[in-house]
């Protein structure tokens, strides 16, 4: 069965870049969300076994999504994908339960390495 994955970014372009960087062998069902509110709705609908999450977004940002998931008992692999390369941003999202941090623009090898590290079958 394909793995439900959720790609969250306010930019269509950024979502396309991320989707293109996913391993081609990975059997996935992709859902997209344009902000944190949409992301949480998709998550609650079971669309996010793995979530790729941007930080800077209108409505509800990535930190807000992580906080909500943590409050509700996080059971999704969240990979934060952000242009914010401050060490403190990295630290914060880890504390909020994200498994990894990927810097934009994304790179396919890096994403594959993270997924393999977490034992996600590709």
């Amino acid at each position: 069965m394909p793995t439900p994955i959720l790609v969250v970014d306010d930019s269509v372009m950024a979502r396309k870049m991320l989707i293109k960087a996913l391993p081609s062998s990975w059997d996935v069902e992709i859902t997209q969300a344009g902000n944190g509110i949409e992301a949480l709705a998709a998550y609650r609908a079971g669309k996010a076994e793995v979530m790729f999450l941007d930080l800077t977004m209108p409505e509800l940002d990535g930190y807000g999504v992580l906080e909500t998931l943590q409050r509700e008992g996080l059971n999704s692999f969240v990979v934060v994908v952000s242009a914010d390369i401050q060490p403190m941003a990295r630290e914060r999202v880890r504390q909020l339960g994200a498994i990894a941090f990927v810097k934009k623009p994304v790179n396919a090898e890096q994403i594959e390495a993270i997924l393999r590290e977490y034992g996600i079958s590709l």
Binding site: S11, V12, M13, A14, S82, A83, D84, I85, Q86, K104
Partner: peptide, 19 residues
């Protein structure tokens, strides 16, 4: 599409400036 791409490109560049 161009607006969206410019926003994203700016966002990436801004991350470097912010850091």
């Amino acid at each position: 599409d161009q607006r969206d791409a410019l926003q994203e490109v700016t966002n990436i560049a801004m991350g470097q400036a912010g850091s």
